[in-house]
Amino acid sequence: MSGGLDASRIDVRIDGRLIVDGVDCTVAPGTFSALIGPNGAGKSTLLRVLAAVERPERGSVEFGGDELFGLPRRQRARVVSFVEQDSSTELSLTVRDVVALGRTPHQRLFSDPSADDDVIVAMAIEAAKVGSLAERDVTTLSGGERQRVMLAKALAQQPRLLLLDEPSNHLDIAAQLSVLGLLRTLAESGVTVLAALHDLNLATAYCDHVIVLRGGRVFAAGATSAVLTPALLSQVYGVRATVLEHPRTGRPLVAFSPLD
């Protein structure tokens, strides 16, 4: 699949244990996909490999036809950006400073930020809706506020591939919808987005495709409504699942109950 993300036969071993086991997955360009699966399925580890911040034991990760691990680091960081699940700092940087870090791969070692950089940082702040926080000390923000700042930093990298690990964590419902909506918009503007999500209803509401991970392997992948069937969900999560139709949007809505 040219243009999109194409990973094949990824193995990751941590302390001798195979955490990601022969994963093949693709994300079409300009789409928003969800990576789902129970805790310990290997979602975070797989995302780190796809973001090329961790080398797999085996396998290749291509984006737009380029092997990511073959690209020079700075060039790669102008293509891919990655939002970690929890990131914190001890440094009392302002939100604007933090977002400006996203410009790092676009700058030379000894040079100062250019006027372009300032404009792009301002746009990223605007897009992530953290304008009111711009001059705040990042160490004083709530978890949700910080999450959005980290998203703004990732946007300042101007990536074509955006990977996010649980971006809706720490967010209240309105903020969840707003962040997911933003990711959707980004995808529509051509950015390829893949996010690990816990909340399946966010996946069904916003994502074109899902990749279901279980035990380090891809259990299923495909269009959201085709993959997230009651049978699959009960197999993967060990619960009874019912798929309804959302009364307003018409998209699938998942409800759970314990197995008998």
Binding site: V53, R73, E84, S87, L109, M150
Partner: peptide, 19 residues
């Protein structure tokens, strides 16, 4: 300036293109 990229840890620095 490179050191700023370490503010959020190694992974974050790596994601910004830093070896």
């Amino acid at each position: 300036r490179i050191l700023d990229a370490f503010a959020f840890g190694d992974t974050s620095a790596a994601a910004l293109g830093i070896n």
